[in-house]
Design a protein around this nucleic acid. Structure first.
Length: 423
RNA sequence: GGAGAGAUGGCCGAGUUGGUCUAAGGCGCACGCCUGGAAAGUGUGUAAUCGCCAAAAGCGGUUCAUGGGUUCGAAUCCCAUUCUCUCCGCCA
């Protein structure tokens, strides 16, 4: 949620910057300003009214104490009119505030000034590319075929017990996943992140805090009996750890890492992009979250990009880093780098991580603040990134490392997997 | 799931015969004094948020789990909800 003050200060600039995200905000912005004007006006009247009531009540109290019952009773009569008006005003006030809030949450985050315009992934800016594409034998196959050949992943069995998008991992690939999780967590801890094990079910307030609600509620699994949502990413519970928290400036940077399963309904997805491990309803991910001082958040974003690059390098996967254009960015993000790994057998880039700076968009919703040097409270910046999501990493590892003798594990993983080869 | 107790500021904790209560006291924290330096001691300060104001100062509103109610007036009384604790039941 954008800070109301900044909207009021330069509405035209807000509109211009949101146009980079292909979002026409003009109507929303002016509705917001009008509602806020109304809110202020109503509050002024209400406050004055309440101030009068309060002073009358005090007077009456003093009269009764002094034994001047009659005068007190006389004064009581004056209050009823005030009370009635106050009731009316507060109804208007609350309704206006609610209406304002509802419109305000519809406005996306502002893209950073450096974000290129654009509408599709083709308009994204490639900022880094590393590693050689592996040269595979002519009979190289995509991971779903390898999974069948070595009896690693059973998609049909997953269908039976849950449905499409819930694969069953077996044997060495199950162990590979466990190895990856530990590898990623250990790396993050070494890089100064504190490990968190968060709940997988969260309440609506948490979903709202990180921006999944109200606009993307169809993407989360929901348990109505208990009014809880399954997390689509550990970002939700971990960032919400700091909801309604006022940090000290010296607390920065706050660095958390969490492994969790992630649950996504992926309503509306189909086709070749969802084949095999490319898109799942349940998958595992290690997520890093940082809270940063507003002056430092873009340095932190770069630090996170370098950190994830390092992971991919250790896994010996060719990758590139893409800075998303306005049209490809999420609702909540101010700047996003996508990390993509080259899948040799599918001959395409697979997104394995998305690293974003949300600036104060999430923290404004969550009331995540810190006290600065001068003792003033201001909003912190939040950032997060996958480090990393497993399924597509597994897909790329299987595909890129296939040989006639079997699938070779990258050296960095062997001490975690306990084997060098899937055969 | 059943029975009972409870929810006050960063933390502990007083206040529940309704009246100047944002709320005693303590701890913590910040700044000073003391000290060669520290500890101890000592002094001062120490909630958030909204509105009025160009801003500071100042003034006003709101907040004692949440929502409603009674009343001129509610931390204090009533109702509902949520959560926590204790006991019982169930249980990895």
């Amino acid at each position: 949620m954008l800070v109301l003050q900044t909207i009021r200060e330069n509405p035209e600039e807000i509109i211009r910057r949101l146009a980079i995200k292909n979002f026409d905000a003009r109507e929303l912005i002016f509705t917001i300003i009008a509602l806020d004007d109304k809110r202020k006006e109503t509050q002024k009247m209400l406050d004055d009214n309440l101030a009068q009531s309060n002073s009358l009540a005090r007077e009456i109290g003093n009269l009764f104490k002094a034994g001047k019952t009659e005068e007190g009773n006389l004064l009581k009569e004056k209050t009823s009119e005030l009370k009635e008006l106050a009731k009316e005003l507060s109804v208007t006030f609350e309704a206006t505030k609610k209406e304002l809030e509802e419109v305000l949450v519809k406005v996306p985050n502002l893209p950073h000034p450096s974000i290129p315009p654009g509408t599709t992934p083709e308009d994204n800016e490639i900022v880094q590319q590393e590693g050689d594409f592996p040269v595979l034998a002519d009979d190289a196959v995509p991971h779903w075929d390898l999974a069948a050949k070595y009896n690693l992943i059973d998609f049909a069995l997953g269908n039976k017990i849950s449905g499409a998008g819930f694969p069953v991992y077996k044997g060495k690939v199950a162990r590979l996943q466990r190895a990856l999780i530990n590898f990623f967590l250990d790396q993050a801890i070494q890089a100064g992140y504190e490990e968190i094990q968060p709940p997988y079910l969260v309440n609506a307030a948490s979903g709202y805090g990180t921006g999944q609600l109200p606009d993307k509620d169809g993407q989360m699994y929901y348990a109505p009996v208990d009014d809880l949502y399954l997390i689509p990413t550990a970002e939700v519970p971990v960032t919400n750890l700091y909801r309604d928290v006022i940090l000290k400036e010296s607390d920065f940077p706050v660095k958390n890492v969490a492994y969790s399963s992630c649950f996504r309904r992926e309503a509306g997805s189909y086709g070749k992009d969802v084949r095999g491990l490319n898109r799942l309803h349940q998958f595992d991910k290690v997520e890093v979250v940082q809270l940063a001082h507003p002056d430092k958040s873009y340095e932190v974003l770069e630090e996170m990009r370098l950190y994830v690059s390092g992971l991919l390098r250790m896994l010996e996967l060719p990758f590139r880093v893409v800075k998303l254009c306005g049209g490809d960015m999420s609702f909540t993000s101010a700047m996003t780098y996508d990390m993509e790994v080259w899948s040799a057998a599918q001959k395409r880039w697979l997104e394995v991580s998305s690293i974003s700076n949300f600036e104060s968009f999430q923290s404004n919703r969550m009331k995540l603040r810190f006290k600065d040097d001068t003792g003033k409270t201001q909003l912190a910046h939040t950032l997060n990134g996958s480090a990393l999501a497993l399924p597509r990493i597994v897909a790329a590892l299987l595909e890129n490392n296939q040989t006639a003798a079997g699938i070779k594990m990258p050296a960095a993983l062997v001490k975690y997997t306990g084997f060098e080869m899937i055969d």
